[in-house]
């Protein structure tokens, strides 16, 4: 049963992710992204990482996508023009895709990735929110702090890039240029 569910959710995730890339309309792309995130959350739930699944739905499928949609609608993005890739790039992409498929098949069907574990019954490390918190704030405390700086830098960058230059020059009088 869980195998069938896995294949179903994996198919949903991959198909939606593919459609995110292929949609011409950004709103459609964002909606497909929700489907991809929900599919990934279902996969987490199948792995018994329920907390992660809930966070995935709440944060990504909920908040992040709403932000995306806001931005798309605020910017009023038009439908992008259909790009006609050249024959060479088309052939190169097809060859790369073929290589990838052959590689994955070779890896898993012929060579094998080593013995597979039956993880049912064992505890996922992030199954419980409490566990998750303990891990995050002991073992992974330094990465959490670094992530904080990552987000700070991203935020400052967005503010800088989106600031209107006209207001800049008005807010910073020439007096500041009097650097001795």
């Amino acid at each position: 049963m869980s195998d069938i569910l896995f294949y179903a959710f994996a198919a949903i995730t991959v198909f939606s992710a593919f459609m995110v890339v292929c949609s011409r309309n950004p709103v459609n792309a964002a909606l497909f992204m929700i489907a991809a995130f929900v599919g990934a959350a279902a996969l987490f739930a199948l792995l018994e990482a329920f907390f992660l699944a809930a966070v995935q739905v709440l944060v990504y499928a909920g908040a992040v996508i709403v932000l995306f949609l806001f931005i798309i609608m605020l910017l009023d993005v038009e439908r992008t023009r259909a790009l006609r890739p050249g024959l060479v790039s088309l052939a190169a992409s097809a060859a790369a895709l073929g290589l990838l498929v052959v590689g994955v098949l070779w890896l898993f069907a012929w060579e094998g990735a080593g013995p597979l574990v039956d993880a049912r019954g064992s505890d996922a490390p992030a199954a419980l929110a409490r566990n998750f918190g303990y891990e995050l704030f002991t073992r992974y405390l330094l990465p959490v702090q670094v992530t904080g700086f990552l987000l700070l830098v991203a935020m400052i960058g967005v503010i800088h890039i989106s600031k209107r230059p006209a207001r800049d020059t008005a807010a910073e009088p020439k007096g500041e240029e009097a650097n001795p």
């Binding site: 990465p143 670094v146 992530t147 700086f149 990552l150 830098v153 991203a154 400052i156 960058g157 800088h160 890039i161 600031k163 230059p165």
Partner: peptide, 18 residues
């Protein structure tokens, strides 16, 4: 994480003269 922090800072720094 360290690599990504550097990368995000660099994206903005390269596009700094907007």
């Amino acid at each position: 994480l360290a690599l990504e922090t550097v990368a995000v800072a660099l994206y903005i720094l390269v596009g700094y003269q907007r």
